[in-house]
Every structure is written in structure tokens, then in C-alpha cells.
Design a protein around this nucleic acid. Structure first.
Lengths: 341, 341
DNA sequence: AACCTTTTCCAAAGCGCTTTGGATGAGCGC
DNA sequence: GCGCTCATCCAAAGCGCTTTGGAAAAGGTT
């Protein structure tokens, strides 16, 4: 069933039918009703391609996720972010187009996406400290929103970020208040912008209290269970082991917990752990009482919000860079306690 | 830069340029070369919408993932599956369109996707025992491949599945061989087809050896760390606790491990655990030596393969239902050992 | 050189929609 | 009943591509 058939069926012109369905005023309410009823009854849906060709709008958003090279794995938060963004899109009638882009050919890929014109806007995932995609997309003139920020990029752009500095600062302060002085940081890869910022918050809090950050207590690695376990095990075996860990993700924290238990220590008594918790659907931090004390910020919510920003930008490209900062909450679980004497 | 501009630039007709670019024989190699060079130099990319309109092909694949209702969470394996499928698509010049569909309006959603025509084929995720989507899609005539199967659907359709029955059978046999008799199954939700099959394999292996399946040792729940922990803790506190656990996912197994450690037991000595391992990028089961003995099957590989099937189906819709069964390997880690006396 | 085949290229229609620029008729005051 | 304005509807062009049905040019034969 296409427009032509529908209009013939109704004995109206395609123009009138199109206008009736798209809410233009040049058509009487009576005919509009008649048209809409027929469209529903006959299960008419306009062809997305044709509509896109005619309007220049695709009603699709691109999510470009970098793969291979240094970061072979697909980010585990990706699914939840998409789920959040998807809610916003669905409500606005947008579709999601995923592009997996090998970061060696990143520039070409973004160019191609743009000129192929199958997308109205882009969400940029996993920004690096100095991410070349941002100036590139700016010069292409394609609306985009970055999930996160790129510290070293100075030109303005739209982003949505969690306040990583503040979150890790607060977490560190909380541990310091509990009397901990030897606090370890098990961070993500620090060429990723968020990880860099978290270290900033961590060291800032320490130095503000006159505690010198100890390089032996800081790791930067992919956020896996294995890595968390290995790093924590090594640190706990040191001469003066840390009494607390600040960890960058739930999965890593699970590895840290394993190392602690294996060392015969009790979590929350002998060793404290605070983790960042993205509030992932499939990796809840406890049900009523959280297991880990955590800086929590829902990545699903971030997805919803980022999508809102992007849609606003698409509706009014002149709206200038839109930004939004989400604050993480510090939730208290059973994994922290006063520093042992 | 569009076709018209390019053809004017070259002083050729749009027809010739189009043919040169798309490899038709009606154009001399010399002009083809000239056209291609110009296209590269001027960074020409055909408009995807227009091409789609003209050819009836969109070069896009839909991945429809059910959300909300009973299964609020986005499947954690989804990211890796997409990453695998994405490789295949990229090589064939296809894009991925994600649709999040509320399963209360599932039927409408699939209809709409079809008639809007923005997709050449569909991958169906998370099939249920008797999944209504399969007859629906069949009747719509849209090429589709199911990731998994639907036990109660009798009409033929294309699918790619892991041999869940065999995998869990083998795992159970392995535990029986080690002398375990009280084996617990911590399964996923059994209206999901894969979970149903896993229980089948489990009970089949038990009964084949004359061990009666004990309902007190079988759980069916969402595969989260919390659930794994709770179920295992409860079972270990029973009068005659299990000596081994068969677990449906790595995340759940991590919860089970926590319960075992908390009970003061040693994993692989006092209690054995076998888990299914989807070989997710962000949740590796150890590096050289696996932590858990596991039935392993790469979901990324499944994604690649499912995409191949679907593309084949799109190229030749008459190719009839295509199916492929992946066998899981049983890998031995340190989480299993002989049953304690 | 005349004829026939190939090769090489082109004009125009068509994919399904939106939108511009009217045309038609109803309703109004006079 | 005349001319006017609105309300209502329509024909046709255009979005950027592919593809059909030819036409023109080149090459080969005799």
C-alpha cells in the first residue's frame, strides 16, 4: 500500500492525502479524519526512503562505535546507553543506525556516513583525550553530541557527560574521612577521557588533604574482572598494601573483591572498596542494600538525555552547542568502613 | 556532490557514470577508470536513500530487540553479537538499524518496519519457546534469521543457534564423571528458549545416569550476579547442599562463586562450578588458564554467522530456510574437581 | 565503400514521497 | 446576482538514483 494507491482508494489526490496525514492546515478536519481512518484500516505506512528523499530528513540517528585497534571490545555500557537513547528516539519517531568503525579509517567513515546522507545526526561514543572526530564532525556540519568530553579539544561542541572529576573526588574524600590514607586507584585506560578525569578527581582530593598520590597504587587498564583481580592481588601483596580501593567499574570491582576474599580479608572491614556503578540492567549493585559503596550514575539515563540534546540540535541547528552535566550520587553500601588501625 | 554534478563535471551522462560506478559492462574500461578516479577525487558517495528508492534495496539490516515487560534489561550479550554481525555487514556494505520494541506492541512494530521499507532483512533476538514473531515475519515475507530457536514453532524458518542441549548435557556428564551426584542448575528464565533447552540437556544427562533431578536444586531466573549469589547461598545452606553447580552465564557464576567463598568453601575443591561462557569481550573467563570450567561459544562468532545467513537469504530469498548449529567447547578451568567424599 | 556488429554512450521514465503554485467552488457582503 | 475572499483540493515538479530502450560511433568484413 503506497500513497498513490491510498489516494486512489479515497478518490483524493496524493497531495491532499499527504497533507491530511502530516497535519497541514489546508485540509478540512472531515477529510483528515477520513484519510486517517483509511490509512489505519489499510495499514498504510509511508515509505521511509521516499519520505527521506523528499524531505532531506531521514529520521535516523547514527551511533558510531569505534572498534578494533587498541580497544577491541565493545563497551559493556553500550547496550544500556542505546536502550536509554532508544526510548527518546522511539517517542520522536527516530531510528537508530549503528556503525562499527575501525578507528584506523575513522575519518573516511564519518565522511562517508555524512555524504551518504542516511543519518540526521550522530552520537559519538568513547571520546579520547584529544579526539580528532570532534573537529572533523564540526567541519562536516553534521549535528552531533558526544557522550563524554574530550579534554584537549578547545572548540565548542555539544556533549553530555557525567561529572567524573567530582564523583571520584567525593569518593576519595569519603575514604579519607574514614581514615584511609593508602588508597589505590584502579582506573580505566587513561587515554579515554573519562578515565583521565577520574584520576584528576582522585589526585585532587588526595593532595587537598596533604596525602601524596603513590604511583604504586595507581593502575590504568581495560576494565575487566581479570585486570581488577590481578591489580588488587598485586597491590595487596605489597609491603604496605592499600586499605582502600577506588575502582572504575563494577566488573573490575568484582575482580578486586575476589582478590580481597582470596587474601583472607573481609570486604568493608579490612579493606574498603568504592566503585563507579553505571547502573547497568544486567549488573545491579545489590537489590535493596547495595553491595558496593559506589558513585552511581545511570548510563541509561545518560542515553536518554544525550538523545534529547541531539534531537533538539537537529530541530534547530543554530541552537548552539548544548551541554549537560550529570552528577553521580554517592551511595553507601557494605564495602566501606573505617580504616583498620 | 551528487550524480548529476559528477556527470556534468565529467561531461558524461548520469547513466554512464552510474554504470561505470556500479560495474556494468556497457562502459569501456577507460571511461570507468576516469569516472572512478573522479569519484574518489571529489569524494562522491551515492545518496543511500535515493539509491534505495531506485533499487528497492536499502542495504540495511534490522536488529529488533524486545524491551520492557518481563525482560526490562537489554541483554548483555547483545553488544558482542552486534559487533560480530557488524563485521560481516561492513564487509558487504550493509548498515545496522536497531529497533527497540516494546513487546506489548510487537506485532505492529514488525509490520511497520516492513511497510516502511527501511530494511532488507531482520535478525530476531531472544526467541521465546513459542515465539509469535516467527509466523508473523514469515507471513510478511521479510527475510529473517533467528538467533536461537523457538521449540514450539513448527513451521520452518532460518536460524542460527548454539547447541544448548548438548552443551549442558556434556557439562552435566563431566560433573557426573567427577563423582558429583547433587548437581544444581542455576538457569536463565525458562520461557526463553535457550534456557529451556539447557534444562533439557541437564535433566537428560542426569536421568541417563539414573540420577533423579531434584527440583530443590533447580532455579530459573534472570541471569544476574545477585540472583546467582542468592540462589547458591540458599542451596548451600540446605540440609544436603549440592556439590556442584551448573550455571547459565558468567555473571551469574560470579555470584555463585561469591556465595561459595562466603560459605568458607573452596571453589574447585569443596564445590565445583561449570558455567556457560559467551566469550564476551569485556568478561573474559581468565586469560591463559580459564577461571571457570565452562561450555564456551563465542557470541561474537554467532553474530558473524547469523549475519552471513541473513545476507545469503536476502541475495536469494528462495534459498529456503538456512540453519546453522554451533557446538560449544567444554573448556576445563580450575573451578571443577572430584566430588568430595 | 557499403554493410553489419559491437561498443559506447544517452534521454527519459520511474521509485514514493513532499511541496509549490494554482484551480475550483463555497460563503459572504453588497 | 456580482465580485470578493477563504477553504479545499489538485497537477506537476523535484528529491538522487537506476534502468529501459535507443541512438551514435567505432570496428570488422566483404
Amino acid at each position: 500500500m503506497n500513497l498513490k494507491q491510498l489516494s486512489e482508494h479515497l478518490k483524493l489526490s496524493q497531495t491532499t492525502v499527504s497533507r491530511a496525514l502530516n497535519g497541514y492546515p489546508e485540509v478540512s478536519e472531515k477529510t483528515r479524519k477520513r484519510v486517517q481512518d483509511a490509512a489505519n484500516a489499510l495499514n498504510y505506512q509511508p515509505n521511509a526512503r521516499a519520505k527521506g528523499l523528499a524531505t532531506g530528513r531521514t529520521h535516523a540517528i547514527g551511533h558510531v562505535i569505534p572498534v578494533s585497534g587498541q580497544r577491541e571490545m565493545v563497551n559493556p555500557v553500550f547496550g544500556d546507553f542505546i536502550a536509554g537513547a532508544g526510548q527518546t528516539y522511539a517517542a520522536a519517531g527516530y531510528e537508530i543506525v549503528i556503525s562499527l568503525v575501525d578507528d584506523s579509517r575513522e575519518e573516511d567513515a564519518y565522511r562517508a556516513i555524512h555524504t551518504r546522507g542516511s543519518i540526521d545526526g550522530i552520537i559519538v561514543h568513547g571520546p579520547l583525550m584529544n579526539d580528532p572526530r570532534i573537529p572533523l564532525l564540526t567541519s562536516l556540519g553534521l549535528p552531533f553530541v558526544v557522550h563524554g568530553r574530550a579534554s584537549e579539544v578547545t572548540t565548542p561542541y555539544s556533549w553530555l557527560d557525567m561529572n567524573n572529576v567530582r564523583a571520584f573526588e567525593r569518593a576519595t574524600e569519603f575514604l579519607l574521612d574514614l581514615g584511609h590514607r593508602r588508597i589505590a586507584l584502579i582506573n580505566g585506560l587513561e587515554f579515554m577521557d573519562f578515565a583521565h578525569r577520574r584520576r584528576e578527581g582522585f589526585t585532587a582530593a588526595l593532595t587537598a588533604r596533604g596525602v601524596a598520590p603513590d604511583p604504586a597504587l595507581m593502575r590504568s587498564e581495560e576494565m575487566t574482572e581479570i585486570n581488577g583481580h590481578r591489580s588488587a592481588a598485586q597491590m595487596l601483596a605489597q609491603d604496605s598494601p592499600p586499605t582502600a580501593f577506588l575502582v572504575s567499574s563494577m566488573i573490575t570491582a568484582i575482580g578486586v573483591r575476589r582478590a580481597i576474599l582470596e587474601a583472607g580479608l573481609v570486604l568493608g572491614r579490612d579493606v574498603s572498596v568504592i566503585t563507579h556503578d553505571d547502573d547497568l540492567g544486567y549488573l545491579k549493585n545489590g537489590s535493596d542494600v547495595p553491595i558496593f559503596t559506589a558513585t552511581r550514575s545511570s548510563v541509561r539515563q545518560a542515553g536518554r538525555r544525550a538523545a534529547e540534546l541531539l534531537l533538539a540540535l537537529i530541530d534547530d541547528p543554530g541552537a548552539g552547542p548544548l551541554t549537560d552535566m550529570l552528577e553521580a550520587e554517592l551511595i553507601i553500601g557494605t564495602s566501606t568502613g573505617p580504616a583498620p588501625q
